[in-house]
Amino acid sequence: MVTKNYPDPKLNEKLRDRYYRRDQSNPEFTKETEKLAGSMAHMCYQCGTCTGGCPSAPRSTYRIREFMRRGVLGLEEEALTDPDLWLCTTCYSCTDRCPRDLAPTDVIMAMRNLAFRRDIIPVNFLKTVTAIYASGHGVPNNDVNRAAREKLGLTRDPPTTHMYPEYIKGIRKILDHYNLKENADRIIKEREG
């Protein structure tokens, strides 16, 4: 009988797993990244179209193609601890141009989500969370702006959570559901004292 299997079951298993592995490879990282991104990163053939159109690439060491490879190879540490992970402006040029119809931008977002689970996150991201927890707005109103609004015939505070603070309770419930405020406060305190 013709079979594609080898007699040695260990060899069989190794060869059936078509992915390249190193000691640092974590196959779960690949799976989780793909699931969160909703994109099959392992279909990437490394053509580099993504990096070629990336506005961050010419002015930094950030290489989206490299992150795609790290995703496929399961190089979790290398990907998540690289400060360049946070240089993607999410412009989606790479996603629009990918000849494999992948979404490198969403792969970056997925990796950032995974990094946050390990408390790896720049503080400015967390400050948006605390601002929204306080007022509902990432960029809240101020007195200069209130005076200007009044002159324009607008309400001093916009008809958002600013004018209807009773809605902030619901926002806090959502954020608390994910313990986001608690984690943000904790990490900011650890970094800034």
């Binding site: 997925a110 969370v129 990432g138 958002t160 959570t161 902030i168 994910y178």
Partner: peptide, 22 residues
């Protein structure tokens, strides 16, 4: 017409990076 009680969208770069579910 005003959409009373709306908040930040929330900022897709900041929030999307932290936790897509939130």
């Amino acid at each position: 017409v005003p959409l009373e009680g709306a908040s930040c969208c929330p900022a897709p770069g900041a929030f999307g990076s932290i936790d897509l579910n939130v």
